[in-house]
Simulated scan of single mutants.
Amino acid sequence: MDKRVYFLMIVSFVIGMVELIISGILDLIAEDLHITLGQAGHLITIFSFIFAIASPILLLMTSKIERKKLTLISLFVFLIGNIVTVFSANYSILFTGRIITATSGALLIILCLVMAPSLVEAKYRGRAIGIVSMGVSGSLVLGVPLGLFLGNLYGWRAPFVLITVLTVLSIIGVYYLMDKVDPKPGVPLRRQLATLKSQKVSFAHATTFLYMTGHTVLYAYLKPYIQSTTGLEDSWIGVVYFLFGIAAVCGGGIGGTMADILGANRTIMIAIIGLGLILLAIPFTTPILALFLIGLMIWGMLSWLISPAMQSYLIETSPETSDIQQSLSNSSLHFGIAFGAVVGGVVIERASISLTPTIGGLFIVLSLLTAGLSIRSRTTNLDHNQKIVDQIKA
């Protein structure tokens, strides 16, 4: 495996920390800036929304720029956003810092995802994507607990000081360790968007949206779910999150390897079926702690196992527009996170928090249907895409 792929994993880890680290220190931010907890929560909302919207747009706008140069520029903007965050004197400035980091971070993550498979042989493509995904899932393991630890010791700005230092090191590393990566030949926007008329592509993106929605319906409210159904103390909840994160990191790597060995479509179906079954089974595991922890780790692994397989699937489906497809897949994932959090909130308010894994499982079942529809159209998809392209040219 090309060593540069592992460096891209580190960059993705740093970017992922900014998105996730703030959730554990919202109360500290609210107290320091004299705002409500709800207003502090908007700092997460705006980040996720921009992350979902910005990556495909920025990828198209920067399609002709050499990738190492573009990565350095994006890292500098990301650095500025973190410096603004660290020195924020009020909520408005902090909000601005989040917008800057979200916009540059969205482009950086998708750059890592599209560069990684281009640096390795075709047979290692899935594994390369999986390694980059491990960087994001790795930030899941360390982001929240590290933010809590540093925030409680030194204040809410301390985690962002650490990220600022890591960003500077990333800039140095990219400059000295990364070779130039030429952009792929430009594909007209109309031709790229035309691929969405293909059922294979559109159902693939729908699959990403639905399975991440199902995952988030429970994960966004995992702490209160654990407290209400298991009675675990707060010290144990930290252990639960850590175990989930470890499993998620492993899942990203396993998913890439499975996609290379078994094929992307088979890996996607296996992972979705497993994810649906484990979410539907979780309510029956809560009376027995050991069984619940095992189920939780299987859930964590499967939730991140699908992503690298889906990225490989989209590359195989539409190689000429693979960059934009990966970017749209990333957007679908973040929209799923946002929508899942909303659905979970409605379930808690209108019914019971104990129903969140069941409702999440139903969304996974829907994603299984869309995945099947996408895979079934495999034999005719490329011909269909070509007809669309020919119509546009005419």
Rank of each mutant, 00 (worst) to 15 (best):
A102H: 01
A106D: 03
L107Y: 00
L108S: 00
I109F: 03
C112T: 00
V114F: 04
V114D: 02
A116I: 01
A116N: 01
P117L: 07
P117C: 05
L119H: 05
K123C: 11
Y124G: 06
Y124E: 14
R125Q: 09
R127Y: 12
R127T: 08
I129V: 05
G130K: 14
S133N: 15
M134S: 13
V136G: 08
V136H: 15
V136R: 10
S137N: 06
S137Q: 12
S139T: 10
L140A: 12
V141E: 15
V144A: 08
L146F: 12
L146G: 14
G147L: 14
G147I: 09
G147K: 15
F149Q: 11
L153A: 11
Y154D: 11
W156V: 09
W156S: 04
P159F: 05
P159N: 12
L162H: 05
T164N: 08
T164W: 13
V165Q: 04
L166C: 05
V168I: 06
V168R: 06
V168P: 02
I171V: 05
I172H: 08
V174W: 02
V174H: 03
V174A: 07
V174F: 01
D179P: 03
D179I: 04
V181Y: 10
V181L: 12
V181E: 15
P183N: 04
G186S: 14
V187T: 01
R191V: 06
R191S: 11
Q192L: 04
Q192P: 07
L193V: 03
L193A: 06
T195W: 11
L196M: 12
L196K: 07
Q199D: 09
Q199E: 14
V201C: 01
S202N: 05
S202P: 02
A204L: 05
A204D: 10
G214K: 12
G214P: 13
V217G: 03
A220P: 00
A220E: 14
K223A: 13
P224D: 13
Q227G: 15
Q227V: 06
T230E: 04
T230I: 01
G231Y: 05
L232W: 14
L232H: 08
E233F: 08
S235V: 03
S235W: 09
W236M: 12
